Amino acid sequence: MASSHVGYIPRALSSVRFHAGQATNRHRTEEIDRFERDRLQDTLRTLAIYPLLHWRVKCALRFAQLRRNRLCVKKKRQPPVSAPEGGPDPLIPPDSLHSVGSHGSAEYVAVGEEFFRYFIDLCELKPDDRVLDVGSGTGRMARPLTRYLKGGSYEGIDIVARSVQWCQRTYASRYPNFRFHFADIYNKVYNPDGKHQASEYRLPFETSSFDFVFLTSVFTHMLPQDMEHYLSEVVRVLKPSNRCLITYFLINAAAWKLINEGASYHSFKYELPGCRTEFGDTPEAVVAYDESTVRGLYAKYRLNITEPVLYGTWCKRKDGLSWQDMIIATKPADCV
């Protein structure tokens, strides 16, 4: 009987993804066909020997719902940011501060809330987890986490001093379990006077000390040697059996097709050893990596990728989830 279930599981996974894609293309908000979902879940309950596959199916179902919700949000105008009683939201930075990828307070809030759902629904973040945000900026991801990390803690680290200083002043008295650190690392675009090289920098945290580590719009501004070293540091500070989420611009056959057709927002026409960039004079401004290269690095540092990779819409991919591509991965239990 188990063998028949084994044969059914790949078809079930395929069916889930098919229904998810169909629902998304039609911009429907209803759930995936209930009969198919219930049949799949009944099967999985009988297969305790397939916990990893069970997780993959759950992830596919959550991804389908998040993607449909994301499409619905895109169809609507962003509402104005609502101010709490007593005045403006103190966790929204002034426009004069550096804030990667946000144009105005409404988008700043929307992107933070978007990733907050990914952290919980796709990465299973818990309220008592210890979290590390590498590239914390002006607290775009920290802001929604203040509502959730009641028994846990948050550490943010960034290379832009003014952003870190603002976060330290803003969060210290309100949320003492949220701490921000300045890393004086050289980056041609974001910290041209930095004293240290990213390829030699050691994160100021103990080994295996975080339940969840994430980097959003960080490796999209780092060259290969620096990116690989940071990835090794992520593995070092992440606890065994726990997850990380990292965003990229990933080049693969589908992305190249859209780029060559002129559909993509980025062309990545400049080729450097190990990566491609959008601008020749400031390569760190926008950096893309071949997907096979990134997969090879994850294998090298023993990070197990949760399939499928969650591709973004930067190249005008019709079924993208967010803007950049996302990889969620787990550090093995025996990796210390």
Results as ranks from 00 to 15, higher is better:
T170I: 14
A23N: 13
D89F: 11
G139V: 02
R202E: 11
M141E: 05
P88S: 07
G312I: 03
R26T: 11
S292N: 13
L258N: 13
P308Y: 03
K269A: 15
G135Y: 00
E114F: 13
L13A: 12
F18G: 01
G87T: 10
K300Q: 14
G296F: 12
R37I: 15
H54I: 06
A198W: 13
G7R: 07
R143P: 08
I328P: 03
L250Q: 03
Y8A: 14
G274K: 00
P332D: 14
L40G: 03
D42Q: 14
R174Y: 05
I305P: 02
V287E: 04
F180W: 00
L71K: 09
Q168R: 14
V16R: 01
Q165A: 14
E85G: 04
E31Y: 12
S4A: 14
Y298D: 06
Y118S: 00
T330M: 07
H229Q: 14
V218D: 02
D128K: 05
M326V: 07
Q225F: 10
S4Q: 11
N25D: 04
F214W: 04
S136N: 00
K318N: 04
S105R: 11
H229M: 09
D193R: 14
P204S: 07
C275A: 15
A172Q: 15
S153V: 05
R17Q: 06
E124K: 09
I246G: 00
N69K: 00
R236L: 10
W323V: 02
I251S: 09
N69A: 01
D334P: 02
R117F: 15
R179C: 05
